[in-house]
């Protein structure tokens, strides 16, 4: 268990922690994307490059669906952008945790390339408990394995499209929400628990009202409500 001997050990610990469920979840999701990409008319190189460059399942799905119907580049830009808005609060919640240990802040522009729900939850679970100089290396190790699994999964999904039985694909795709539901159920910090509960309850309802902006509204409304409630509880105890 952490802390590790030095940043190098933290990097390898990140690698090892990602092997197993986190890598399997990415693999499963990207196998799903790989076969969708093939059905959408992507070439293999484009499917794999999309995973590397966009690195977000909702964004990639939006891109594949629009590409298949011959949408314009502008329409794809808007759809991918809206689907990926969540990276703003995610980056804002993660990077300050790294800051003291990152010598050249320019590296952050590289680090965010590897940001995904998977690497974010992996980092948020461990990094706050590590010495500052071990945090970014841990995240980098964790992300290396996830990205590797994502690229391999995309290629495998592309090649295996139509070959895998439906139930197998179903299981692979369901890995993602089940895994994250449990990871989030394991969050102990009170403000986090409140935000997760509020988001889970209003998320689907708001989505029905606005499929495009539902997530953003959910984040801001449920997040703010959780924040205010947590502050109020804090004051009452004090």
């Amino acid at each position: 268990m952490p802390p590790y001997a030095d940043p190098r050990q933290a990097y390898f610990a990140g690698l090892i922690d990602a092997v197993g469920l986190p890598a399997l979840v990415v693999l499963g999701s990207m196998i799903g994307f790989g076969s969708l990409a093939r059905e959408s008319g992507f070439a293999l190189w484009l499917a794999v490059a999309t995973t590397g460059a966009v690195w977000s399942l909702p964004g990639q799905m939006a891109m594949a669906e629009l590409y298949s119907v011959g949408a314009s580049a502008a329409a794809i830009a808007v759809a991918v952008s809206v689907a990926n808005l969540r990276f703003l609060p995610m980056a804002l919640a993660m990077l300050p945790v790294f800051r003291q240990g990152v010598r050249h802040q320019g590296w952050n522009y590289i680090l965010v390339l590897l940001l995904s729900v998977n690497t974010w939850t992996g980092a948020m679970r461990r990094c706050p408990h590590l010495p500052h100089d071990q945090r970014a290396p841990y995240y980098l190790g964790f992300s290396t394995v996830c990205m590797g699994a994502g690229l391999v999964g995309t290629a495998a999904g592309f090649v295996l499209a139509g070959v895998l039985p439906r139930t197998v694909t179903l299981g692979l795709v369901f890995l993602n929400p089940i895994y994250f539901a449990l990871v989030f159920a394991d969050v102990r910090q009170r403000s986090g628990v409140l935000a997760l509960a509020a988001g889970a309850v209003i998320g689907p309802l708001v989505h029905l009202l606005s499929p495009v902006w539902g997530l953003v509204v959910t984040g801001v409304v449920a997040g703010t409500a959780a924040y205010l409630l947590d502050e109020a509880l804090e004051r009452r105890r004090a």
Partner: peptide, 18 residues
């Protein structure tokens, strides 16, 4: 920072629930 973390958690929980 606490607020933006709450927003991120709420958004991701909403995504998984959806």
């Amino acid at each position: 920072f606490k607020w933006v973390s709450c927003v991120a958690y709420a958004l991701l929980a909403g995504l998984i629930a959806r």
